[in-house]
Amino acid sequence: MSSAPVLLSVNNVSKHFGGVEALRGVSMDLAAGEVVALAGDNGAGKSTLIKAISGVHRVDGGEILLSGRRVDFATPSEARASGIETIYQDLALADNLPVGANIFLGREPKRKAFGFLPVLDRKKMADAAKETMARLDFHVERFRAPVSTFSGGQRQAVAIGRAIYWNAQILIMDEPTAALGVPEQRKVVSLIKTLKDQGKGVIFISHNLADIFAVADRIVVLRRGVKAGERTPAETNGDEIVRLMVGG
């Protein structure tokens, strides 16, 4: 792990909302091909941290470095343009559109019909969808069906596919397995492994210790806005993580 280049460094970051200190001096690193799990109880600051990284919130103190360069994103689109994609629990998919249209939403490719009439290039979208989903080792057949007809795991894959098609280097996933059944959870875990193998950096928030231990390279535990600890799965166990989360 130490040999891989560090993609993201969070150094001593603080954020407060009015009198409430949501984050106090939190630091963490993320390397290429690394999966970091963010654990913590409700209100521990997990969401604030990922929102700070993805450009939703601006930090009040400390700094965020992207490949060693200091960044200060004003909006999520700026973060996205720098290769940081966030996949929220709601996935933000247009359920009525097929995979390709979701991947290309807002950046649809065009072609000329009859040599003059600009029209959406659906074939290109479907091909890209097919190729992207194959890269995720996730095989969907119906590239013309709306994603509302897909299973939860497939939809998660579409959301991830949308991110990696546009060359995201860092993927932040908020509770990617929360709403899924067990077989679907397993698929998402293997999806995360695929991303890791392709050299992406992944930060994911989870409450599910089994998932965390199955895929994370490191576990960062937050409690009341401070980092309560950082462990590799090999050197810790579920009990210790829970202790770090709740304190005592």
Binding site: D90, A92, A94, N96, L97, A101, L105, G106, R107
Partner: peptide, 18 residues
Amino acid sequence: QHTYAFGASRAAAVRSGI
């Protein structure tokens, strides 16, 4: 296309930069 997306999910449209 954006009309369809917006109608299905405002969030999807907004986060796609529409």
